[in-house]
């Protein structure tokens, strides 16, 4: 290849041209609002609505003043519990369902797949309403159902108790979203070449060994991705708690998560007047928490993960 060196490489305008629309939309609707939020968190408003620069005082109030920090840590801890429940229940069940679905001996697997994925597509408000009715001690069917299988004495007004409302909400959310890990892991399992499985069978491994030694290592990157998606979605969660328990996320803030705390701060609630700047500070902290989580995953977990060329 003898390229005449006198010809200058032209600037690749076409690349810019093709990138521009996406970049423009991303910058206007994602980057700009994000930066503006970060900036807004550094301001305060006086009684007449005048904004003035206040440095990090919003964050000092939020993290050091007991009136703000207690709800904040409470919401963060509740949110962590919400996430742990998803990781312990939603993702293992998703993995289990995906393993079942990918079994060649299962009939009607497409039907099951669609049915299990269905709740994910429904509005959270509908999910919240339906589950409130199902679990209602007044009109609900759960109590009768539990009695019919002999567990009636364990029924309680779970959504209304301080000890159980967050767990119940998390399980409702698990029920709704279990389809997503299932689908992603299922797709990853389908992409495992059959000859690998065949080879393992020829080598004498049983079903469990095949799963543990062949399939699981191959789908591990997908499980990692599912975990990080769960993390981001959980720390941004809001709708379900708001739909079922309202913005005060009771009883005694036992179901208060970052999203509801942000809502109360930003928009205000009943007589508590909203503060746009304080709300921006809460939103920034939510962003930072998610950022740190994602960074930890990217730099600590993902780098050590082995990937196999299939």
């Amino acid at each position: 290849m003898s390229q005449p060196s006198s010809i200058q490489r032209r600037f690749p305008w076409h690349i810019l041209f093709f990138l521009a629309p996406g970049l423009l939309i991303y910058v206007t609707f994602s980057v700009y609002p994000l930066l503006d939020t970060l900036w807004l968190g550094l301001f305060q408003e006086d009684a007449t609505g005048q904004r003035f620069f206040a440095g990090i005082s919003n964050y000092q109030t939020l993290l050091l003043d007991a009136a703000w920090s207690e709800p904040f840590w409470n919401a963060l801890w509740n949110n962590t519990k919400f996430f742990i429940i998803h990781m312990l229940v939603q993702n293992p069940i998703g993995l289990f369902l995906a393993a079942l679905l990918s079994s060649p001996r299962l009939r009607l697997s497409n039907t099951y797949r669609t049915l299990i994925f269905m709740p994910t597509m429904l509005s959270v408000v509908i999910i919240g309403f339906v589950w409130q009715l199902l679990l209602s001690p007044i009109w609900g069917i759960s109590e009768g159902f539990l009695y019919s299988i002999g567990l009636g004495q364990y029924f309680d007004a779970w959504l209304g108790k301080e000890s159980s409302s967050l767990i119940t909400l998390a399980l409702i959310s698990v029920w709704q979203f279990v389809g997503i890990p299932m689908m992603l892991i299922y797709a990853a399992m389908l992409s495992i070449p059959d000859d690998l499985i065949d080879a393992s069978v020829v080598d004498g491994s049983n079903a469990w060994q095949t799963f543990w030694n062949i399939k699981l290592p191959l789908i591990l990157p997908t499980i990692g991705m599912v975990s990080i998606l769960t993390f981001v979605a959980n720390f941004n969660a809001f709708e379900l708690v708001y739909a079922v328990k309202g913005a005060l996320a009771g009883p005694n803030f036992s179901s208060d998560i970052m999203g509801t705390l942000f809502y109360r701060t930003f928009f205000g609630f009943q007589l508590q007047s909203g503060s746009i700047t304080m709300g921006a500070a809460v939103a920034t902290l939510m962003f930072l928490i998610i950022l740190v989580g994602v960074m930890l995953y990217l730099f600590v977990v993902q780098r050590r993960m082995k990937r196999f060329q299939l």
Partner: peptide, 28 residues
């Protein structure tokens, strides 16, 4: 709770909702 007393943080109205609920629930 409506005049002046819910102006600051924590808002007295929100506090009343919270504690009255807990008193009725028998947890406070």
């Amino acid at each position: 709770s409506y005049q002046i007393l819910s102006r600051g943080t924590p808002s007295m109205e929100n506090e009343l909702w919270n504690v009255s609920t807990q008193v009725l629930n028998g947890t406070l």
